[in-house]
Amino acid sequence: MPSVTSTPTAGTAALADATASDAALRRFLHGLPGVDAVGLEARAAMLGTRSIKTTAKAYAIDLAISMIDLTTLEGADTAGKVRSLSAKGRRPDPTDPETPKVAAICVYPDMVATAKEALAGSGVKVASVATAFPAGRAALPVKLADTRDAVAAGADEIDMVIDRGAFLSGRYLQVFEEIRAVKEACAREDGSAARLKVIFETGELSTYDNIRRACWLAMLAGADFIKTSTGKVGVNATPPNTLLLMEAARDFHAATGTRIGVKPAGGIRTTKDAVKYLVMVNETLGEDWLSNEWFRFGASSLLNDLLMQRQKLRTGRYSGPDYVTVD
C-alpha cells in the first residue's frame, strides 16, 4: 500500500490568521467541511471488515503492544500499583522476552516520580494526565501548576483535557489560549519539552462537526497529539470518532507539513478492536503514522488480550487469562 504523502499547500503562517481573534477562529472552525455522520460511520465500519490474518496479525499485535499507553487513573492508585504496572510495561510477557514493551505508563501527576523511577533506563515513557483531569473544571493557574508539577516530576508526556464548557459555549479562543498556555508549561528548563496530548472528551462534544473543529483548534494551538477521550465518560473512543481525528491529522499535515499524533482512549479492550484501529491508521494516515511516535492506544485491559493472542499465534494454543499477569 502506498503511503499517504502530501506537500504542504499552505503554511502554518496562513493559518495563524485564523487564530487572530475569537471571531476569526470561529469563522475558520465553522468553515471546515461538515461531517456526514452516516457516511463517516459507514467508512469506519467498512474498514472494520478487513481480515487481518497470520503474518499481518502478528505484525499488528506487536505494533499494538508497542503503542499502548498503559494506564491507571484511579482514586485508589498507590505507588505499589504504579510500580507493578511499570514492571508490566517494561516486560509485558515474562515468558517471551521478544514481546515489545509498551509506549508509556500513564498516571496521575502525583505518581509520575514513582513511575519514572520504576521505568528508569527502560525507554518506556511516563505520561501524566493534567489540567484537573478528567473534568477540567479548575482555574487556569491551577491547571498550569498541575502541568508544571507533572513535568518537574519527570513526565515525558502530558495528557491535558480541554475545557468542554468553554468549547460548547463557543468560546473557542479561550480553549485555544488555554492549550497554548499548557503547551508552554510543558517546557523544561533545559529547553526540551514534554509532548502534549490534547483530550477532547469526544463523548461530551457530541457531534462530529464539533469533534473536527476541536481537532483543528488543538492542532493550531500546538498539540503534539490529539486524543479522543478520558475513558471516564459514557462514550469514549469509537472507530468513527477516531477516524475523524485521523482525517484531521492527515489534512493538517497536508496543509502545514506538521505531523500530529493520534490517540484513541477508553473502551478498546480486545485485539480485534486494536487491529481495526491499526487498519484505520494504515488506510487513512498511511504507514508514516504506524509507530508509537505518532499513534497510541490509551488502554488498561487491552494489553492482556494482545498478549493472549500473541501467545496463541506463537504456540498455536490459547492458554487463557491465568497465563498473563494481572497487575
Binding site: 500500500m1 490474518k53 499481518a56 496479525k57 505484525y59
Partner: peptide, 9 residues
C-alpha cells in the same frame, strides 16, 4: 516495515 495484509481468501 509496512502493514501488509496477508492473503485472506
Amino acid at each position: 516495515m509496512a502493514f501488509e495484509y496477508a492473503p485472506a481468501p
